[in-house]
């Protein structure tokens, strides 16, 4: 089974620094900015961004986690049942600049669901999308990211697999598999 490493810990570190620089450039003081990690793996990335931005700017940016399960459009249409993860939004979203964070952007349907889920907490002034891996040519919806770690051209049979240390892996690694590995 062919697999290609898209990012490892070292590259991820460099990528994260670059993306945080971009965030600083766009947000300036982060006074009204919040991070929302998308469950399940976007939350690890959101936490890392928070820590990195704190190191770079000494700003303490609120982080929440958002679960999209109840907002998905494939309920009753998929073979596997969906089980929910925790949503934790410990701040007011009204008039905030929200940075939605996920590891991989593929069809865009999860992001669509995340936007619906987020709107249940209020009306943000601006919503941006931050992804580590952007799978090009695979979108089902007109959704594009604002911050991209790496763009890859993939076909449907390929899978991007993200391993975070927080999940118990020895190293952070992001792989591109040519076929789905069960």
């Amino acid at each position: 089974m062919a697999k290609i490493k898209l990012l490892d810990s070292k590259l991820l570190d460099i990528t994260l620094s670059r993306l945080c620089q971009q965030l600083i450039e766009n947000h300036k003081d982060f006074k009204d900015s919040v991070l929302l990690g998308m469950q399940p793996r976007g939350i690890f990335l959101a936490d890392r961004i928070k820590i990195r931005l704190q190191e770079m700017t000494s700003e303490n940016i609120p982080v929440g986690s958002l679960d999209t399960t109840f907002y998905r459009d494939d309920f009753r249409r998929r073979d596997e049942p969906l089980s929910p993860n925790a949503t934790h939004v410990p701040f007011i979203i009204e008039d905030k600049k929200v940075i939605l964070v996920d590891d991989v952007l593929y069809t865009g349907r999860t992001v669509r669901a995340a936007i619906s889920a987020m709107l249940a907490f209020g009306r943000p002034s601006i919503v941006e999308l931050f992804v580590l891996i952007n799978r090009r040519y695979s979108r089902h919806l007109p959704i594009e990211p604002d911050y991209v770690g790496r763009t890859v051209n993939t076909i449907q049979s390929q899978r991007v697999v993200v391993e975070w240390k927080e999940q118990g892996f020895d190293e952070d690694n992001i792989w591109l598999f040519n076929q789905w590995q069960g």
Partner: peptide, 12 residues
């Protein structure tokens, strides 16, 4: 958690 939000409804 959902029913304690300002908007207590989900579209499931």
């Amino acid at each position: 958690q959902v029913i304690n939000r300002p908007i207590k409804k989900v579209p499931s």
